[in-house]
Design a protein around this nucleic acid. Structure first.
Length: 203
DNA sequence: GCCCAGGTGGGTA
DNA sequence: TACCCACATGGG
């Protein structure tokens, strides 16, 4: 499990913790999210049922380190409520559904947008749903492979249509794009396709 | 003190 | 449909 890339890139014990992390990490640094998750774990609140039973202000207090805590508390409540109604908290049942249909369902939940839905599908459900984030957008634009304001769907299609639909590969690609995006080399050197991004060219 | 981080939803033109 | 803004903490 200590392989390259994504295995270690999205830490989390079990699919529900991954789904919670996907909401908490929205526009926030992962280090802050880790503390929030640790608080939830210490409070025994890392189950859909426990989140539903937790008073909103208390939930907000626990996830404070992740930022936007009031907004995210409402989102976590929405997720937990929906899981109860949709699958009686059975993630096994949830992720056994048709991927495209499940994606639409996820998008209907308050606080779950395209990137969060795809993160949940890929990292919690092990479904081949490519995650397009800010790094991916920037890099594709920088390489001249996409316009600056291209839609999420079109960027996602770029990968979906040119890669084998394999979960480990999607995870690896995403992790490499993020790793590259975080590094400063590409911001300084316009033609940096020779640096760490070269790992992508194997595929 | 300033900028940014693994976005989303609601409001306005 | 297409912007614009609120949401907020912690590290560099």
């Amino acid at each position: 499990m200590d392989r390259y890339g994504p295995q270690g890139w999205w830490p989390g014990e079990g699919p529900f913790e991954v789904m919670v992390g996907a909401i908490l990490t929205q526009s926030s640094a992962w280090a802050n999210v880790e503390q929030a998750i640790a608080n939830l774990k210490a409070a025994g609140a890392l189950t859909p049922r426990a989140l539903r039973d937790l008073p909103l202000p208390e939930l907000a207090r626990l996830i404070r380190p992740s930022g936007y805590y009031n907004a995210k508390a409402v989102k976590l409540k929405a997720l937990a409520d929906w899981l109860g109604e949709s699958c009686r908290d059975s993630l096994e049942q949830l992720f056994s559904r048709d991927t495209a249909q499940l994606r639409r369902e996820l998008l209907s939940v308050h606080g779950i947008g395209e990137e969060t839905a795809d993160s949940m599908l890929l990292y919690a459900g092990e479904k081949p749903s490519f995650v397009v984030d800010a790094y991916t957008r920037r890099i594709l634009h920088r390489l001249g492979l996409a316009g600056e304001r291209q839609s999420y769907a079109s960027l996602q299609a770029l990968f979906a249509e040119n890669l084998p639909q394999e979960v480990p590969l999607f995870k690896e690609y995403h992790a490499l794009l993020v790793r590259h995006g975080k590094s400063t080399c590409w911001r300084r050197a316009p033609a940096c396709a020779q640096c760490c991004l070269k790992d992508l060219c194997r595929y």
